[in-house]
Design a protein around this nucleic acid. Sequence first.
DNA 1: CTCTTTTTTTCGAGCCTCGAAAAAATACTG
DNA 2: CAGTATTTTTTCGAGGCTCGAAAAAAAGAG
Lengths: 411, 411
Amino acid sequence: MSVGIRHDDLRRRNRAMVISAVRRAGQPSRTEIAATTGLSHSTISAISSDLIQEGILTESKPSETASLKRGRPQVGLGLNPEATAVMTVVLSLNFLSVAVIDYAGQVIAEEQRRLDTLTMPRDELIGECTAIVRRRFEDPDLDVRSVARIAMGIQGITDTHARAMLWSPITSQTDIPFADILEGEFGIPATMENDCNMMAVALQWRDPERYRDDFIAILLSHGIGMGLVLKGELFTGTHSSGGEFGHMIHRPGGALCRCGRRGCVEAYAGNYAIWRNARMMSEDAEPADVGDADMRALAARARESDGPEREAYRKAGEALGFGLGSLFALIDPAPVAMVGVSAAAFDLIEPALREAIAQTAGGQHSKSISFDTEPNELPLIREGCAMRALGFVDQEIFAPGVQVKPGKHVA
Amino acid sequence: MSVGIRHDDLRRRNRAMVISAVRRAGQPSRTEIAATTGLSHSTISAISSDLIQEGILTESKPSETASLKRGRPQVGLGLNPEATAVMTVVLSLNFLSVAVIDYAGQVIAEEQRRLDTLTMPRDELIGECTAIVRRRFEDPDLDVRSVARIAMGIQGITDTHARAMLWSPITSQTDIPFADILEGEFGIPATMENDCNMMAVALQWRDPERYRDDFIAILLSHGIGMGLVLKGELFTGTHSSGGEFGHMIHRPGGALCRCGRRGCVEAYAGNYAIWRNARMMSEDAEPADVGDADMRALAARARESDGPEREAYRKAGEALGFGLGSLFALIDPAPVAMVGVSAAAFDLIEPALREAIAQTAGGQHSKSISFDTEPNELPLIREGCAMRALGFVDQEIFAPGVQVKPGKHVA
DNA sequence: CTCTTTTTTTCGAGCCTCGAAAAAATACTG
DNA sequence: CAGTATTTTTTCGAGGCTCGAAAAAAAGAG
């Protein structure tokens, strides 16, 4: 069962609520905050004056929404950009990037770097990651002590506690405890996040109307990944980052997947699988890396004529459709965002995908399921990491100590 | 975002915590409750003396665990059986049962009845359900006003809010708002629960060691159903009861399922599917009802000789294995309880099932996944309904009013 | 310049939890 | 059998938190 509520938790939680309301709403007045949180004006007044005093919030004086109304004008509350900063590190295939983000969410410094992740030995890979972070800290413009959190995102499987990369397609290395490494190196709390989960987090912030309580973000790239939000919360597996949509079984004993098994969705819909089918290679052919440019050229050819390229995309759509259908049997249909280079070829994928879904339990709603596409995953992953890190800071700045004890579950 | 915590919520929640601790632990002393909830002894003392005064808890004097220790002996706190009562109604294929359960969880009255659910018209089906409940209320031994909740369980799909049956294999009727019907008829709050979810709830109470944070209950009967507990909480779909494991796609375009689609797991592992395969009928053959006795005879024949019967169970195991494998790709492996008549034939199913799982993303753990079997689902469903109803009562008795406002989700 | 309206702050009241100390209830000891 | 030690439970005052009501502040309207 979850633990009882102590008297001191009360303030802590309500402070959290106020900060979260401000981060979400932009420049809300105290009155608006009182309305959305359900707390009384007196309480909001007390909490926000504390937060301002502590330098967490700032009053953003007048102007803004031209006050045409009578009465005392509202004064907006905003996050103080200088309250603290966070750092994001995103490691993807052959590419490493880092960014420093202020408390209000603005990027204040960044650096990107190409490197050959696939062949790189373990130590070198870790070394590159720590080095790029170190260079940011050496930047004289940046006050080192202002960085309160590092969130690292990686393509691959991470553990539930967001401490380590367990497996990744971008390197042959496994089980790298990046969070511990970064914390040890820089003495700043760090987490290791799954790329697709961060995409989902970012979508939630980018378009809260559309991506709110339930939605799915699917990465269509070299591999197939998924970030899933259910009832407003990121869904993770019980041991790992979870949601290995790409490795649901599409055809038992079917095409060879990069993971070594057969018949996974990814073995039909990953870049290498589309490439393999478009070239009419065997379904057992070893998965090969395909560049984004090659994939775009492939899509162009598929649009031109009805040859094996188009058929390859059709097969990808079918695999994705049946996979989504099975998923929808479990969680009910939800809006889907397709992200990554093959999302730019979604026009080639969609017909077969919808046809497949229509044959599944999700089928009755197949027409109403809406798809969005976003070809570029990296900015999304970075945004997600930033929001995640800021979220942790929000929770920690106001909660000096006093964390819930690990309790048993509740009925 | 979720709503702020009011000062009065504090007591409400801590009262809930105490009641829940007592329901879970049996006869805990105040000291034990203080330990598990993390609240101070003074607080527990205050809350429990309130609860005793209100007739919700009782002090179960001494004896019990022979107090060999020095010092003042602990006095156990228990639920007062007379505090209130709940009623469960379970509707399954050709069978309707009702039970009255006291606040401590003991059955105090019950009635069961056979009826032909498949052919029964809508009004008659509803009429039978209300009539059996009415008969309980007419029992002079029962104080009508003591029943505070009705939980109805049904095989089939229910909506997220536990108000209505949307679809069920036991009748051709759809969208029956049983919760509203019972509330309207008897003026007592009611819910409409999915059978497999209730099985999962019951398992959690029966064996909290084994079935705690993450586990799966699978109903192997006429159809294939699933109840899923993740991170200690019942997992439901966003619109429906969710977890339609039986209708994940095993083989695209494959065998005909009772739901009208093709290739579902159920079309290979449901009773009718096993029967169809054992008789070497076409996979397109219309699903037919098979009695439990016939299924037991089939299993016996399969054990005797390696004929089509054994092959039918093998196919069922394969379908279940690949389905579980896909599920484990999404949620990580967890203990599984197999429930229902075909769980008694699990020895015939298990080899192929494990072989299939080994070929999937869950494969690396296939050996460590443990299966439990329970051939009789009805008692589980009833227990689950009872615990669910009592849980609601626990929440409502101490929370007179003051419910959280429907809020937006939190970061 | 005064009145009206709206936002924000102030202030006392009422709860709630906590820690410390007291009270209660039993086993151990000689 | 009386006194001591030990453990559980209750009591009591202190400190904090939120709330509602009223006051204060800051504008536009007339």
